[in-house]
Amino acid sequence: MYLKLLPFFPGRVCTIQDPLAAAVSFDGTVSTVSDTSCSYSAVQDGYSYNPDSYVYVDFDAHPTVSGFVDRTEHVFKDTGADPVTCPADDIQGCSFGPVTDKPKEINDVGTLALTTQLGSLTFNAILGVNQITTLYTDDTLLIFAPVSKFDELGGLCGEYNGDPADDLTIRDETVTTDAAAFVTDWKTDPNCVSTPARSMLRYHDQTSLCSGVPQETVSGFEGMCQDIISPHMNITDLAKDECLQILCICNDRDIGACEASLEEWFTTLGIVDQRKKDPLDLAIELQSAFL
């Protein structure tokens, strides 16, 4: 799986896309995750092990591609409510029942669920009174946070404040440079024994994952990224670099699976990117569904 962010009015979005094992914080730091034995906090209020509001994520090994990790479910807990669970392989199999395009309250605090369209893609959406929104399909999870939540959130999506320098903030509110320590610290159960995360990279470190890949292969990946990104969004250095590094991760695995996943990823990101520039952005669009 990998997490990706884009600026989004009125906040930012963190995306988990199967089947790659890399995590991108709200503010742009990338680290890869290989453990599937523990649950992890993607986003939560504060730093404790008992937050009143959170999105937890479970992972499992990809069934056919060695070294890949898939999301198996996510758990959404709204402020003052019991948590609800949605399995990745059955998006209509949530603990609160099936979702339709008609919004419904899924608890007594007013958390809402519905289906919504992003371009040609259909997502289930959960909108919390905690101002956190998740959109998800069987292999994609988007977590939206408004700017009003700046400096209030912790988890694998990072310290949400617009500054990538402190993205790897752990529960004691110190910043580590060790990706394994960062990922391990955001287990939901401190007693769960996990395997280490893979090495960390940042989006401005363009050679960290491609340094061992032959230059001819890297050049080929650059062309693939051009073809993957350009139909959906402007090709920025950040987008190109993240695409390139993900393909370099896949060089000794399954390039076809990675390419297909990147195609879906940039399709989604392109749609979100268009919406953030539209005055009728997703937040307003979802709110209008409740009227």
Rank of each mutant, 00 (worst) to 15 (best):
Y2K: 03
G11Q: 11
R12C: 14
D18Q: 05
P19N: 12
A23K: 02
G28W: 10
V30N: 06
C38L: 12
V43R: 10
S48V: 09
S53V: 08
H62S: 07
P63Y: 06
H74A: 04
F76K: 02
K77W: 01
D78Q: 06
P87E: 03
A88G: 00
C94N: 08
G97Y: 12
D101M: 12
P103I: 03
T115R: 15
S120R: 13
L121N: 05
N124L: 09
N124F: 08
Q131R: 12
T134H: 00
Y136M: 04
A145P: 12
A145M: 12
D151W: 09
E152T: 15
C157P: 03
C157H: 00
G158V: 11
D167S: 14
D167Q: 02
D167C: 04
R171H: 07
D172A: 07
T177Q: 01
D178W: 03
A181K: 02
V183I: 07
V183W: 00
W186G: 03
D189W: 00
C192G: 00
T195W: 00
R198Q: 00
M200G: 15
L201M: 07
L201R: 07
L201I: 06
S208V: 09
P214W: 05
M224K: 02
Q226W: 09
I235P: 14
Q245P: 09
I249K: 13
I249Q: 15
E263L: 14
E264T: 13
W265L: 15
W265M: 14
I271C: 06
I284M: 12
E285K: 09
Q287S: 06
